[in-house]
Amino acid sequence: MTLRPLLALLCLSQAALAQSLPPPAQPARQDAAALRQSVEQFLQVQTAGLPGQVTVKVGAIDPRLQLNACAAPEAFLMPGARAWGRTTVGLRCTAPTPWTIYIQATVSVRAGYVASAVPLAQGQAIEASQLAILQGDLTTLPAGIATDMAQVVGRSTTASLPPGTPMRLDTLRGKTVVAQGQLVRLVSAGAGFSVSAEARALGNATEGQVVQVRTAGGQQVNGVAKAGGLVEVAF
């Protein structure tokens, strides 16, 4: 047999052998539904201590992503992010093939919050009858909204508010414990001595604020307002 027919026969044999071999195995692909479920479970754990009814909605994953299967993908939040409102959750895989993706999600927290039931004037001491509990998604409201009337009653607003305004804790002043013109008990104590005298407040003050008072002898003194009409003075 000449060389050319021999080479042709060899090529045909190799082609037949290649056709008889099974194709190389493709790596298993990651199920997108399983990833979305991992994100949902992660956010449910993160929001377990929140009040009211928490709802988690996980966004779609780009179907063009071809991720290798991961036995234990790890969910995480970016620095500064939290499980509140619109957020982004990361998913990372370390083995067998490392990859990281980011998935959009929305966390809604429907609960009661405190709002003004009537117009409130600036500086007005707030009573329970002037408040109402409304229902809404707390994640769409400003930060620091009161969720319990006890957080608001007795305090005063820093601005006039119309009815239906959510009560923000950072816009409320503390309860007035000393009122202008009120007779107060001026107290001071130190090593080996204690002094108590009656005085009249020259201004309003919440607990812990400095207030000026006038003693019976006409002396003006600054002290720290305390509950029960007390003013502490350090000598």
Rank of each mutant, 00 (worst) to 15 (best):
Q46V: 03
F193M: 11
R110S: 13
D31E: 14
Y113L: 00
G217H: 05
P162Y: 02
R86T: 07
P166T: 04
T87R: 01
S156I: 03
T140A: 01
Q180I: 05
A32C: 10
Q135N: 02
N222C: 07
R168G: 13
V224N: 02
L9P: 00
D148G: 13
Q182N: 01
F76M: 03
L21M: 02
I145C: 09
G90F: 12
G59E: 03
D170C: 02
S188D: 13
Q130S: 14
A18P: 04
V152W: 01
P22S: 03
D137H: 00
A146F: 05
V89F: 08
I101Q: 02
S13V: 11
W84K: 04
P163Y: 09
A189D: 03
I61V: 06
Q130I: 12
G112I: 11
R173V: 04
L17H: 07
G136L: 09
K175Y: 01
G223E: 12
P79F: 10
N222Y: 11
A179G: 10
A197R: 14
A81S: 15
E127C: 04
Q135I: 00
P163F: 09
T106A: 06
A25T: 09
G112Q: 15
A143Q: 14
V153L: 08
L17T: 07
P98S: 14
Q220G: 02
R214T: 05
G192V: 08
P23L: 09
S108D: 07
M1S: 13
E40I: 01
V231F: 01
L6T: 10
T55H: 05
L91T: 06
T147H: 00
A33V: 12
S160T: 15
P22L: 08
S196M: 15
Q182G: 01
V56C: 07
R168E: 12
L183G: 13
L35S: 01
Q53R: 12
P51F: 04
N222I: 03
V210K: 13
G52P: 05
A191E: 11
L161W: 12
G90E: 09
G123E: 01
L50T: 03
F42Q: 02
V109K: 08
V45M: 04
A125K: 07
V177G: 01
A33L: 10
Q30S: 09
S156K: 06
D170E: 08
G85C: 13
P22N: 06
A189K: 06
L134I: 02
V213W: 04
Q180Y: 00
F42M: 01
T106C: 06
A227Q: 06
T176N: 03
Q212S: 15
T176Y: 00
A28H: 04
L161D: 07
A32N: 12
Q30C: 07
T176E: 03
M78I: 13
S13E: 08
Q182K: 06
L91R: 03
A227G: 01
A234D: 05
A81D: 15
G174N: 05
T215M: 10
P98K: 13
P98I: 14
V221P: 10
